[in-house]
Simulated assay, not measured.
Amino acid sequence: MATSTTPPRLDRRAASSTPPRAPRRVGFSQNLGRWDVKLSPYLYISPFFILFGVTGLFPLIYTAWVSMHDWHLIAGQGDFVGLENFAYVLQEPNFWKGIRNTFSIFLISTIPQLMIAIVLAALLDANLRAKTFWRMGVLLPYVVAPVAVSLIFGRLFADQTGIINTILKDIGLNPIGWHSQVFPSHVAIATMVNFRWTGYNTLILLAAMQAIPRDLYEAAVIDGASRVRQFFSITVPMLRPTIIFVVITSTIGGLQIFDEPRLFDQLGQGGPSRQWMTATMYIYEVGWGNQKSFGRAAAVAWILFLIIVIVGLVNFSLTKRIASDNASKSRKKVRR
């Protein structure tokens, strides 16, 4: 007799009467692991934000508070004056001289610096012997203290006994008043800035060049493109994001220049008629000079901060627009 193989049916009442399983308890180590996964990324990046808040954000906010008070270097905090310090600074002729000199030195130094840095990075990216030696040699001026650079170049550009004026006399040219004329003094200070910062920007651009795929250059060689054509058609377009970064950082640093013009002569006042006094030197003169007014110095600092932000945004928008226009033109050429 055949037996049935169908499984026995469970009683619904019995199934419903069985107690539900108790939830599994999560141990302390598992909870700790979950919190570690959630919080560890924020803990890793927190030192930067803490340091920025202490050394960057708090001084910025506190400077705004100081700029609205009659704050003396010795007497300390005075009465609340609102925007009187800003109004006083904007009426000062030396303030506008400092802004003019700052922009002049910035333009003379930044544009040649970027061009020379791109060319040097392209040369260092080529097949050269002793690459490490040449790269360290390019970075060496950046390592030198700015005080030493300023003292050396101050002697080179001396009006009476400077080496440059001596050479100009030997070849039959008139000496240049590096410390008495406006534009020559700006050129001398811009030369110091270029000497220090060109190598630093060169290594940044060199690192970006080494990240460019070599297949592009091999294809260009097969098509018969020369080195110059490869540089302008491949290297420069691929360096657009890095060039934007270098332009913005050079803008921020160039508008805050202090060491080179401060040590260009022994007095450190920006010349007899303040012909090379920058905005940061004017801040030092107002805060620690004859006026000793921290409120007015803080007002100048905030005006300079707003100028740097505006110029940085303008540079970013212009370079981004130029990069997008060039990219669209290259796409049209490829489609054709």
Results as ranks from 00 to 15, higher is better:
Gln266Asp: 10
Ile61Pro: 03
Asn326Leu: 14
Phe258Gln: 01
Asp79Gln: 15
Val228Gln: 12
Pro112Leu: 05
Asp36Ser: 15
Arg240Asp: 06
Leu255Phe: 01
Ala64Ile: 14
Thr166Arg: 14
Gly98His: 06
Trp288Val: 05
Val143Gly: 09
Asp223Ala: 04
Ala148Met: 11
Lys320Ile: 00
Thr6Pro: 00
Arg214Cys: 02
Asp223Gly: 00
Leu156Arg: 05
Ala22Phe: 04
Gln210Leu: 13
Ile61Ser: 07
Val89Glu: 02
Val138Ile: 15
Leu173Lys: 14
Leu32Tyr: 06
Thr18Lys: 14
Gly254Val: 00
Ile176Ser: 03
Arg262Val: 06
Val119Tyr: 11
Tyr42Asp: 12
Lys169Ala: 09
Arg274Val: 05
Gly98Arg: 06
Lys97Val: 07
Lys329Ser: 13
Pro41Glu: 05
Val144Arg: 02
Val221Gly: 10
Ile45Arg: 08
His186Glu: 09
Leu73Cys: 08
Gly177Ser: 08
Pro7His: 04
Ala145Phe: 10
Trp35Phe: 15
Gln256Trp: 03
Ala190Gly: 09
Arg12Val: 11
Ser40Pro: 07
Leu263Gln: 01
Asp223Thr: 04
Phe86Cys: 08
Ser293Asp: 00
Gly254Ala: 02
Ser67Leu: 05
Thr55Ile: 11
Gly271Cys: 01
Gln91Phe: 04
Ala117Val: 00
Tyr284Val: 04
Tyr217Asn: 02
Val119Trp: 13
Pro23Arg: 09
Ala87His: 12
Ser233Glu: 05
Ala299Ile: 01
Pro141Asn: 01
Thr242Glu: 03
Ala208Met: 02
Leu90Gln: 08
Val246Thr: 00
Asn174Leu: 12
Thr102Ser: 11
Trp35Cys: 11
Ile283Asp: 03
Trp65Ile: 14
Arg335Asn: 10
Glu285Cys: 05
Gly98Ala: 15
Lys38Trp: 14
Phe231Cys: 03
Leu313Trp: 10
Leu57Tyr: 13
Lys292Met: 14
Lys333His: 08
Val311Asp: 01
Val119Met: 12
Leu206Phe: 00
Ser109Glu: 06
Ser29Trp: 14
Leu124Trp: 02
Gly268Ala: 01
Gly98Lys: 07
Pro184Glu: 09
Pro23Ile: 03
Ala148Lys: 04
Val138Leu: 13
Arg135Val: 06
Arg240Gly: 11
Ile257Ala: 03
Arg25Ser: 14
Gly177Ala: 09
Glu84Ala: 13
Glu218Met: 06
Asn315Glu: 10
Met277Ala: 14
Ala207Ile: 08
Leu43Trp: 15
Asn315Ser: 09
Gly199Gln: 04
Ile167Thr: 10
Ser226Trp: 02
Leu32Val: 12
Pro184Phe: 09
Lys333Gly: 07
Phe294Cys: 05
Phe231His: 04
